[in-house]
Write a protein that binds this DNA or RNA. Structure first.
Lengths: 191, 191
DNA sequence: CAATATTCTTGACGATCGTCAAGAAATCAT
DNA sequence: ATGATTTCTTGACGATCGTCAAGAATATTG
């Protein structure tokens, strides 16, 4: 079951078996139910995780409505990485959109691994770099494209999202209201 | 002159003098003139840098108009980090908005340092984490706040930007047209 | 200082957006 | 299956936006 994680890690840095074993037994499989809050606002995020099954969203609340920053699927990284890095309290929630589970690695365990094995420090660098790539790309998309273009790009890249996540959450992810996304779809599909 | 860089690095990881010296002599001071392109589109970014003096912007062109992703001032990190990490060609330009200079560290030199000194690998991790924090915060701001709120926040946080950078570039940075920013300012200052 | 270039503002207009409200459609639970 | 809940669509309306164009203000250059 942890093979998927190792596969992901190996794509960043190939760890010797001994180091991998040290790391492996720090992971704990955490199951969750639909609707469960995996990280609450005003809580410091003291873990990183890797999705094993299910879907999860990362969002915050502004003026009583939700702003979705990300969705996470199996194989993907899971954390409030900003809170994790900075030690500050989370302004976001992590919420399960379905039943599922993820592999959890606690901050203190990871920091011990960093100190013990330089290669794992490098792994941490690569992870941070990958996470940077993703946010930077999302920022770029948001600055450069119109809502309609953003939706089209999403359709091309992540069809699973469209099938398994309510549209009003996708609208928020795209930075528009639910009604606007409904009209964007109408515009597109009646041309 | 390189003291500022060391100060920045020390805030992330304190390096032994020997390692710092190894690193230090990899830095090259690069001067630039206003209007100069420090990184061109379709070019892979093979360096990171640290602003020594002057102002620089990071932007891309979409449908013949400019989308500004970032401005950089003395002491700040300078690179197309996405291109640097991924090795892919830049879709952005780095352009000098004034005369100035920056400390340049080439990718191959940095990678040698990574391999030689684990602590510098850790430094690289911390840098990536800091850069992540900044993009993530910018993304959050863009998703959560209205253009008017974004402008107000910018006024509070970065008055120097307002004084030294043309408004139409700031407008682009905020994700609106130049005319819209002009009207936002009018709205604010006539209340 | 004068001429030129750049940047900023303003008006007009149509497109898109958010919000509120109501009803339709789809999903879920019993 | 059916009743309840959730999600999606649509209409109406006012606010904001982008664009085009013209003129005002500011900065730069000789």
């Amino acid at each position: 079951m942890k093979d998927k994680i190792r596969q992901y890690f190996d794509s960043l840095v190939v760890l010797p078996d001994k180091q991998w074993l040290e790391m492996e037994h720090c992971f704990e499989l955490v199951s969750f139910k639909k609707g469960e809050i995996l990280l609450d606002e005003h809580t410091t995020c003291n873990f990183i995780g890797f999705m094993n099954s299910g879907i999860v969203r990362f969002f915050e609340i502004k003026n009583a409505n939700e702003k979705v920053t990300a969705f996470w699927f199996p194989g993907e990284f899971l954390s409030n990485y900003r809170s994790f890095i900075s030690g500050r309290k989370s302004s976001h929630y992590i919420e399960a959109l379905s039943d599922g589970s993820f592999w959890k690695l606690r901050k203190d365990d990871l920091f011990k691994l960093y100190d013990e094995f330089p290669l794992i420090d490098r792994l941490g660098r690569k992870m941070a770099e990958q996470l940077y790539l993703m946010v930077a790309q999302r920022l770029d998309n948001l600055l450069k494209e119109t809502p309609e273009e953003r939706y089209k790009i999403l359709v091309d890249k992540n069809s699973r999202l469209l099938q398994e996540v309510p549209q009003y959450m996708i609208a928020s992810y795209l930075g528009v209201s639910a009604e606007t996304l409904s009209r964007i779809r109408k515009r597109i599909y009646t041309k």
